[in-house]
Amino acid sequence: MVSDNFLGNYASCVAARSTNRAILAGSQDGGIVTQLFAFALEEGIIDGAIVAGPGDEPWRPRPMVATTVAELLAARGTKYNISPNVSFIKEATRSYGLDKVGIVGTPCQMQAVRKGQLYPVGLRDVPDKIALAIGIFCMENFPYQSIVQLVEDHANTKLDNVTKMDIGKGKFWVYTERGATVQLPLKVTHKYEQPGCHVCLDYVANLADISTGSVGTPDGWSTVFVRSKKGTDIWSKALAAGCFETKPIEEVKPGLELVTKLATEKITKNRKTIEERASFGVGKGLRNPYI
């Protein structure tokens, strides 16, 4: 078990991508999330998974309990705005009747899940039913209206025509149906970020069973941290079933070094923000949620 101040505890870290072309086709990166849930669903490791499904407006996600592979596929890809996936965590065990729940979420959502398991104030009978929590790396998130502003105003593109959004290589990328690509420098996007993200102290979902993101690996691949006992068990079964193609993380570029660099930058910056909040006013500060 590796224990890192910024990357958390993990049993192993690899570069990986799904061996299933259909999954890869619409996935954000290596299709890790969708492939893992599809495998877990077919194996009965989970009865369903809470994912960010399609919502009422283009690129506006709505949390959804997916109980079929088709539903998982419909929820592929990153939506760069808030999908309150945790809001379904009790409902999944009630109306949906799941005994073994999968959930994907940002690092802060993994924090909510773990706090909920240890302190289930309003989560009766939920703690033992979390069968697979997959975390996705996250530098920041945006309100939906920020995405409208960025895509429709700054990138001058209709949201309906967008096929993919991505953040990478220092830019915010917007891809359209007709093959046009617009890129915005991140200095444009920063001011539109969700403010709550600025006190966030986790980049690579340290509390997930398995966490994954694009940073560290070549396009179309993902960096995967296998963390908990549950995660280790499910990951090894998925590998044995041939779900993933993998490479040692040491052999890919840019590798863990970049992940560490970004994690350190994010957490250091946000720690500073928390400090600054303490003296935000005159002799008065803003709350620090961490105790």
């Binding site: 309150p84 965590i89 009790k90 802060c108 989560l123 709550g196």
Partner: peptide, 13 residues
Amino acid sequence: QGLCIGCGACAAA
């Protein structure tokens, strides 16, 4: 206080 991250835990609870 500018701390909410839209996780959904409140609604679940």
